[in-house]
């Protein structure tokens, strides 16, 4: 019972905080660009707006199109449950490990790509094709990172990462690679651009182009959560964190504030990258991910050498 409560808490945490994180990044981005920018709560307003609108569904769409948002939503949340947030091991950690998480994300992506093809719009097909192309190249880079991490910590179980350890070169490089991967996974510049609807460049937006109203809200929500999951992972791998044992409240509080600082640091990095780098051509993405892969290999070699 305790476990289920904790899980629900974690879900609630992810659902409520994830849009804030996205708003935060946008805010930082705008501030760097010397703009005032929208409020950090703008993603919440967007979600509420979408939820209260009626949806338009294409005549050619089938049940795949209707069910995809739920699959995306539930798979992303399932992945989120694997991350230990409040205590040392996630209550759902017997459900799977880091590798399983990769496959769980693949489930959502698979359905979204199918849904994009379902309406018969060429935009959808384009988005679907590009998304699958990028994701299939992400996979080896991600796998290399996980491999490096597993070499260092001796397991792919996520809770082992959050055990106390010193900062090592290997984990920093691995986290850097994971950061690059997360850029591709969360469709940010230079791989994709969330801000435009230009058919030449859009990938994720092209896939969800036909969605409107509440299903779109679910998908947006899922992508916020996905981003947060990745940031948490990076935070766990790169920084030596020791999750609290809840013996005293002060310790827990200091831990929580440290965690927040880390996440904000990563957000700033993400925003900086997005501001500083131009969007890449689709085929150049392969080079980008190859770079992430090479970083993974370096992390691996570092782990083998023991630094």
């Amino acid at each position: 019972m305790n476990k289920i409560l904790l899980l629900t808490l974690q879900l609630a945490f992810f659902i409520t905080v994830a849009p804030l994180l996205s708003g935060l990044i946008t805010k930082i981005k705008n501030n760097i660009r010397m703009r005032e920018g929208q409020s950090v709560f703008q993603p919440y307003y967007n979600l509420v707006k979408l939820f209260s609108k009626s949806e338009v569904i294409s005549g050619t769409a089938s049940w795949i199109f209707r069910s995809a948002p739920f699959v995306v939503f539930s798979s992303t949340l399932t992945a989120a449950l694997l991350i230990p947030v409040f205590i040392f091991t996630s209550p759902a950690h017997t459900m799977g490990d880091l590798l399983a998480m990769v496959f769980i994300f693949a489930l959502g992506r698979f359905f979204l790509a199918l849904a994009a093809l379902d309406t018969g719009s060429s935009f959808g097909g384009m988005g679907s094709s590009r998304e699958m192309f990028i994701s299939s190249l992400v996979e080896p880079a991600l796998c290399m990172v996980i491999f490096a991490v597993s070499l260092q910590f001796g397991s792919t179980d996520i809770s082992t990462f959050s055990g106390a350890h010193a900062i090592s070169v290997s984990s920093i490089v691995a986290a850097l690679a994971l950061f690059l991967v997360s850029i591709a996974e969360t469709s940010r510049i230079p791989v994709d651009n969330q801000e435009t609807h230009l058919e030449l460049t859009m990938v994720h937006e092209a896939m969800v182009l036909e969605y409107s109203g509440r299903p779109l809200a679910l998908i947006e929500m899922a992508s916020y959560i996905k981003q947060m999951v990745f940031f948490f992972l990076i935070a766990q791998i790169v920084f030596p964190i020791c999750l609290p044992s809840y013996e005293n409240l002060a310790q827990a509080f200091s831990w929580a504030s440290w965690y927040c600082v880390r996440i904000i640091l990563i957000s700033i990095a993400a925003a900086l990258v997005e501001v500083a780098v131009a969007k890449m051509r689709l085929l150049r993405v392969a080079d980008f991910l190859e770079f992430a892969f090479v970083l993974g290999v370096i992390a691996c070699v570092c782990a083998i050498v023991g630094v």
């Binding site: 209260s52 569904i57 294409s58 739920f70 939503f73 449950l81």
Partner: peptide
């Protein structure tokens, strides 16, 4: 977990004040 969360999503989806959904051609 996948199933439960999927159903949760569906419940959230439906619990909100129901709006009619419109069938229309794909955006052209």
């Amino acid at each position: 977990v996948l199933l439960v969360l999927g159903i949760t999503g569906l419940v959230i989806f439906c619990a909100w004040r129901r709006k009619r959904s419109v069938r229309h051609n794909t955006w052209d």
